[in-house]
Amino acid sequence: MRLRFVLSQTFQGLSRNLAMTVSVILVTFVSLTFVGAAALLQIQVGNLKNDWYDKVEVSAFMCPASSATPACAGGEATQEQIDAIGDLLASESMTPYVDEVYLESKEDAFEAFQEQMADTVWAQSLTVEQMQVSYRVKLVDPEQYQIVADELEGRPGVEVVVDQREQLEPLFLVLNRTTLLSVGLGGVMIVTAVLLITTTIRLSAMSRRRETGIMRLVGASNLFIQLPFMLEGAIAALIGAALSVGGLLLGVRYLVEDWLASSTPWVQFVDTGDVLTVAPFLVLAAILLAGISSIVTLGRYTKV
């Protein structure tokens, strides 16, 4: 009997303040969608780092015949200098850092250039002798790329050392900043949702002062009086959370899995499993929103 009364009061309050209830649902939906998108984006950054950092190479380009860099003032790298770099990379001191070493000759570089730039004027004008020898070094731990780079830089015959990680860091920086932007927008919307839930509960409590007064007179407990108002906010917030999870599932399913993943199969994108991993936290956030709003409001408007 008591449960039926509490539920009837709850749904009566929701129907009385239907416009505010819909507003709470929509704001909660938008705010938690931003938060969920930020979490998924951070998972995506982690996936990219795991995939690409394992493929990071340090490339040591040997001096070509016509280099204008100060490191190549002595002219084209000699065979002794090329062999010295190979011996250094194969030495015991570099074993903990170097996984594999690949020597790309002028002929190999010319063949690769012709394949990649076959439709350009450069492909017709360059010759094998104009290419440069290089070492491609795969690392045991990509995080220790700087150690290998420091060992190679400044060696006789080495023109430049290129770390592929430096090319990836700007991408990860943009993604991380996008995550922070999503979190910031989600935070603003969460504050808005708290204020709306608070307002909804306050209006509902003020419109039912007579009923709560009668309940006080007959000895109803504080929890029994406040429970319908708490449920109103919780139901609205949970509906918003459900819409957020549903929106993220649809977005990942059709935009990421069906579109992005099919066009770029070599990239490990987030999937619906990641959304389901994030979903409980979004539901918990919705419950916390309703709880905080109830605590702020009910103590003032329904206290005994």
Results as ranks from 00 to 15, higher is better:
F224R: 13
A149V: 06
A77C: 08
A68P: 15
L243A: 09
L249E: 09
A234Q: 10
V304Y: 08
A60I: 06
A38K: 02
R4M: 10
G36K: 03
R136T: 05
V183N: 01
D150N: 13
P280G: 06
V296L: 13
V278M: 07
W122Q: 14
T69H: 11
F34H: 01
S182M: 14
G74T: 11
T179F: 07
V245I: 15
V256G: 07
Q116S: 11
D87G: 07
E232L: 05
R300G: 03
N222C: 01
N17P: 01
S125Y: 10
M189P: 00
K55L: 10
S204Y: 00
N222A: 12
L126W: 09
V174D: 03
M206K: 13
S125A: 11
R208D: 01
R177T: 11
A261G: 09
L195V: 12
M62Y: 02
L152G: 00
N176Q: 13
L243C: 06
V161A: 02
S15N: 11
Q130M: 15
L26Y: 00
M189N: 01
G247A: 12
I85C: 10
E115P: 04
L18H: 09
A84M: 12
I201A: 01
D274S: 15
E151K: 11
V22Y: 02
E115V: 05
Q268L: 08
S294G: 12
R155N: 07
S263F: 10
M117S: 06
T179G: 12
M117T: 05
S207H: 09
A193R: 01
M117W: 13
D87L: 15
V6Q: 08
E151Q: 15
I147P: 00
A290F: 04
L196V: 03
N17H: 12
A84R: 11
D108M: 14
D119I: 11
L41W: 04
L126A: 09
L181F: 14
G187Q: 05
A279D: 12
E111L: 12
V183D: 00
I214S: 06
K49D: 00
M131H: 07
N50R: 14
L260W: 09
G36Q: 04
G186C: 06
G154M: 07
Y145N: 03
V188Y: 08
A279P: 13
A71Y: 01
L250S: 08
T200I: 03
S294D: 05
D274V: 13
S182C: 14
F5P: 00
V35E: 00
F61W: 04
I85Q: 09
G184L: 14
A73M: 10
V160L: 09
A193S: 14
V304F: 07
V56K: 02
L18T: 12
Y254R: 13
Q167H: 07
V275W: 03
R216I: 07
N47T: 05
F61R: 02
A60P: 03
E211P: 03
L298Q: 04
A261E: 10
C72K: 03
L88S: 08
S67D: 10
G219L: 09
T33V: 04
Q132I: 01
T21K: 00
E153R: 15
Y53T: 00
